[in-house]
Design a protein around this nucleic acid. Structure first.
Lengths: 139, 139
DNA sequence: TATTGTTATACTCTATAACTATA
DNA sequence: TATAGTTATAGAGTATAACAATA
C-alpha cells in the first residue's frame, strides 16, 4: 500500500472518534453549547456565535438560553446598537470554559506515551504539513 | 507550550472537519447510510448494522429502506433463521461502495504534498503510537 | 418465552419563514 | 427599508415501547 495511505489510515484511527463529544457530556453541555462556550473568550453577538457554529441564527437562541439557564452566560444589549445582544460569560462560565479548553487541548495518552524525540519530530512534520495545506481549500 | 500539545493542536486542525460528511453528500447518502454501506462488504443482518453504527435497531429499518430505494442493497430472509434479514449489496451498491472506500481512504492533499521521507517518518511514528494506544481505552 | 425486525411515537437538532424592535 | 434576534413550525436523526413473526 502507498505510504501516505497507510499513514492516513493510522492517523484517522488515532483521532476518531472525536473526544469532544465525551467532554461535552461530562460538562453537561450539548455539542453546540460546547462550541459556543469555546468561542466566548470575550463577549460575542448572537450572529457571531451562529457564524462560528455554522448554524442558523435561530438555533443560537436556544443554545444561549441553555447557557443562561446553567448560569454560564448572560445576554446584555449592545450600547451601540440595541438590536444586537452581547453574550458574556459569568464567573462560573469562565471557570467551565477553562476546564473545557484544558480538556480539548490535552493530547491523548498515545501521544504523551511517545518519546520526546518522536513528539518533536511529529510536531515539526505536522507544522510543515500545515504550511503546505494553507494553500489548498479547507471548508 | 508543551511539544505534545502543539503536535495535538496541529493534528486536530489537519483532520477536522471530517471529510466523510462531504463524501456522503457527494454520493447522495446520509451519514448513517454511508456507514452501513461501508460495513456491507458481505451480507449483514439488521442487528449487525445497528451495532456497527452504534444506533438503535429501529433506525436501521429506515436506513436500509433508503439504500433499497436507491437500488444499492436488498433484504433477503436468512435461510437458517427466518426472523433474521440479510442485507446484501446489488451490483450498483458494490460500485458505490467501491467509490466510497476509495474516497475515504484517500489521503488529504497536505499528506500527498509531504516528501516521501516525511511520509515514511509519519507512518512509522504513528505505527508506534498505535501500538502504545492499543493498551488504553478506545471507546 | 425470548429474539429479530418493524411500527408508532417522542425528543433533539437543524433549517425556513414570519415577526419584533430597532436602525 | 434593512438588520439582529426571536418565535413558530417542519424536517431529519435518534431513542423507547409495543407489536408481529419466528425460534
Amino acid at each position: 500500500m502507498e505510504t501516505s495511505r497507510e499513514a492516513w489510515k493510522l492517523m484517522v484511527g488515532l483521532v476518531y472518534p472525536p473526544r469532544w463529544l465525551a467532554i461535552a457530556r461530562k460538562l453537561g453541555l450539548t455539542p453546540p453549547g460546547l462550541g459556543a462556550l469555546r468561542l466566548l473568550d470575550e463577549p460575542r453577538t448572537m450572529g457571531e456565535i451562529a457564524a462560528f457554529l455554522h448554524c442558523d441564527p435561530s438555533n443560537v437562541t436556544g443554545i444561549v438560553d441553555n447557557l443562561e439557564e446553567k448560569g454560564l452566560a448572560e445576554r446584555r444589549p449592545s450600547p451601540q446598537d440595541r438590536r444586537v445582544k452581547l453574550i458574556e460569560l459569568t464567573a462560573a462560565g469562565r471557570r467551565t470554559r477553562g476546564r473545557l479548553i484544558r480538556e480539548i487541548e490535552r493530547p491523548p495518552e498515545w501521544m504523551e506515551a511517545l518519546s520526546d524525540e518522536d513528539q518533536r519530530t511529529l510536531r515539526d512534520l505536522l507544522q510543515r504539513a500545515v504550511e503546505k495545506a494553507s494553500g489548498s481549500a479547507n471548508p
